[in-house]
Simulated scan of single mutants.
Amino acid sequence: MATTVSLVAGGAGFLGSHLCESLLDAGNEVVCVDNFGSGRRTNISHLVDDHRFQSIEADIRDAVTLPPAEEVYHLASRASPADFTDFPVDIALTNTRGTRNLLDYAVATDARMVYASTSEVYGDPEVSPQPETYNGNVNIRGPRGCYDESKRFGETLTVAYRDEYDVDIRTARIFNTYGPRMRPDDGRVIPTFVSQALHDEDLTVYGDGSQTRSFCYVTDLVNGLRSLMETDGLAGEVINLGRENERTIHSLADMVIDMCDANSTVVYEKLPEDDPLQRRPDTRKAADLLSWQADTTLQSGLELTIESFRGDLFAE
């Protein structure tokens, strides 16, 4: 039986590198495409000696020639809130022009494609939990608009390509995901809290800490992405991927301080503009169509994440 070739755009990123690793473990050949803007070479350094792995340094916003593949995972975009201010044009064009380039590639090679959208398309939701049918509450001109709205347009583009070119495209709306290989300066809450706690620094909570998030461990999320790709009959579907373990940011801070055995306290700063007050996925569609659910508890996932961060931050 022929080996499946999987192309992972953004393959050197946090999520992309775990996906590359999982695909290799499954026996696939993997082509990692990354411009290393936010992806890190160290994330894939343990994969480069595998003859089934190829790393291509390229920017999907450009017209680049890529080897043929049967599967395309589009994970290429800066996703850190810390980057929304510094790289808004980069983000907006990656999710629009870059998405078009990968869709053209999928049409030309007759590849199946998974587009990594985001829970951010729901904005600051007025409905909870958020089902795939909810159209969201997004400020297109706000500081998060470069990411939120470009992801939304990326979804629109995938629908247009499906209708006009009959491309098999599936969309994953990814909720907060965490685990090893996240950048300590990522700006998302778990790497920020863990880094601060391991340094015995005060943990920064924005607002009063009553806002909620739902956290999915990276290996569960990767399994969901692969199920979405590998399940037949799902062309055109959009599916939430995340874990329904909603908790307040304040309770997360207390949990991280305790697990890191840190001499830290919580300090409060002003809530950023358009920061969502509630985020929880409705995952019934994923359960029905993919027979998938996220099983890793927050306690177990944080233990693995803290252990990894401790090794990275204090390596000799």
Results as ranks from 00 to 15, higher is better:
F14C: 11
G16V: 04
L23T: 06
D25A: 13
C32D: 07
V33W: 02
D34R: 11
F36Y: 13
G39Q: 10
I44A: 06
I44C: 14
H46E: 13
E57D: 06
E57N: 06
A58L: 08
D59M: 00
D59N: 05
I60N: 00
V64K: 01
V64I: 13
T65R: 08
Y73K: 01
H74Y: 07
H74Q: 09
L75E: 07
T85C: 10
D86H: 15
F87Q: 15
P88N: 06
V89N: 14
I91D: 10
I91N: 11
T94G: 05
R100E: 06
L103D: 07
D104F: 00
A106H: 02
V107W: 06
A108E: 13
V114K: 01
A116T: 11
E120D: 13
Y122G: 03
G123T: 02
S128M: 08
P129L: 05
N139G: 04
N139V: 03
P143M: 10
P143R: 09
R144C: 04
C146L: 03
Y147C: 04
D148E: 14
K151V: 04
G154Q: 01
T156F: 01
V159I: 15
R162M: 09
D163G: 11
E164P: 07
V167S: 03
I169A: 13
I174V: 12
N176K: 10
T177P: 15
G179C: 12
G179E: 15
P180T: 08
P184N: 14
R188Y: 08
V189M: 09
P191R: 15
T192Q: 06
F193Y: 12
S195V: 00
A197C: 02
D202H: 15
L203S: 13
T204L: 10
G207Q: 07
L221G: 05
L221A: 12
L221N: 11
M229V: 00
E230Q: 11
L234Y: 11
E244R: 10
N245E: 13
E246H: 07
R247N: 13
A253P: 09
I257V: 13
I257M: 08
M259T: 12
S264N: 12
E269A: 11
P272H: 07
E273M: 02
D275E: 15
L277D: 10
T283R: 08
R284Y: 12
L289P: 06
W292Q: 04
E303F: 12
D312E: 12
